[in-house]
Design a protein around this nucleic acid. Structure first.
Lengths: 183, 183
DNA sequence: TGAATCATGTAAACAGTTACATGATTGG
DNA sequence: CCAATCATGTAACTGTTTACATGATTCA
């Protein structure tokens, strides 16, 4: 005979993981979260503002977050959220779900059907890709010294991944442009 | 005074681009498309079966595809589709739309919040990633000799991109595992 | 004085997934 | 004989985006 009922773990989406994950570092408002997403998880996950604001009260209802109203003068009042123990459990579960087999890649899709575009357009797409990936790599390299691998190992790892991906994209673009020249 | 009204170009999604793009190589059924997606665009774009079957009649209504019923014996009847001139125009337009700034990456998201997972779990995630990317690279290398860069330049380019991405992911995983060891 | 920041949302539409359903034919 | 292939869908839901809306305060 058990004294506690078996716990049903709340299934959560990756967007919810992102929200819970960010909130583990302390009480924050929706607005705060939106700021923090830019330049952080925002490199690989970008919920819309409206989605975020819609999500927060739902997570409260499900017992994964606790809300607290903060009155301010000179500033609009705000609601700040923090993660409950159930929220932490749900986060852990959510992060352990296997990733979908395929992450869609809209750029590759466009290239794949490049023959249907006027000559020159694909070339310019690839040049734009190369340039934006170079810029992205530069951004990541600027951030790098501010991330301490001792205390923020996992964010640091994603930064390294971002760098490798960007480098691969640049290398590819250079190859691709050469191949286009040969045609 | 113009004799023809200015054409409003149908806005289409990338999934619709994929469908129209595949159909430019000749009349095919939904079933045919599903077969062709595996091992082709399926590496970076995977509509659900139900989505595809729902899409086809809608594209017909919008004048981008033409449907033709084919009666068969010994096999269920089928509907085959081909692209109309309007469909080709829409495809061209669709492919030229800029890609979204961020393609989501569920794997990076999981790693980013790795500190909330039990020790060892992230390590196994990364090992699994490395292994699956190695397998993927092997698949692409198997396919490579069957793709002729002269006649199928653009699919060939995406294959190269796939290879570079996979290699980057493998390199990263190896780095990441070393860093985890140091902790 | 006008733009940016702070702060939060609603409404509507669209895109996409999951589960379910059917039924004949062919190959091992 | 059983699994796979051929062939197509529906229903319900979930997730996400876009556009719109408000209004005070601070900074250049």
């Amino acid at each position: 005979m058990r004294t506690k009922p078996a716990q049903t773990i709340e299934q959560i989406t990756l967007t919810e993981c992102a929200v819970l994950g960010l909130l583990t570092s302390g009480e924050q408002s929706g607005y705060d979260l939106l700021k923090r997403i830019e330049g952080g998880v925002g490199f690989f996950w970008t919920p819309a503002k409206s989605q975020l604001y819609a999500l927060l009260p739902k997570l409260v209802e499900r017992g994964l977050l606790k809300a607290r109203r903060v009155e301010q003068d000179k500033r609009p009042d705000k609601t700040v959220y923090r993660v409950t123990p159930a929220g932490r459990r749900a986060l852990r579960e959510g992060l352990m779900q296997p990733s979908p087999a395929v992450d869609r890649n809209s750029f590759e899709l466009r290239v794949f059907f490049g023959e249907h575009l006027p000559p020159g357009v694909v070339r310019r797409m690839i040049e734009a890709r190369r340039d934006s990936q170079r810029a992205h790599l530069a951004t990541l390299e600027e951030i790098e010294p501010t991330v301490d691998p001792k205390t923020e190992l996992y964010p640091y790892l994603t930064l390294l991944d971002g760098k490798e991906s960007a480098k691969a994209a640049i290398r590819w673009a250079e190859q691709a442009l050469e191949l286009l020249d040969e045609q």
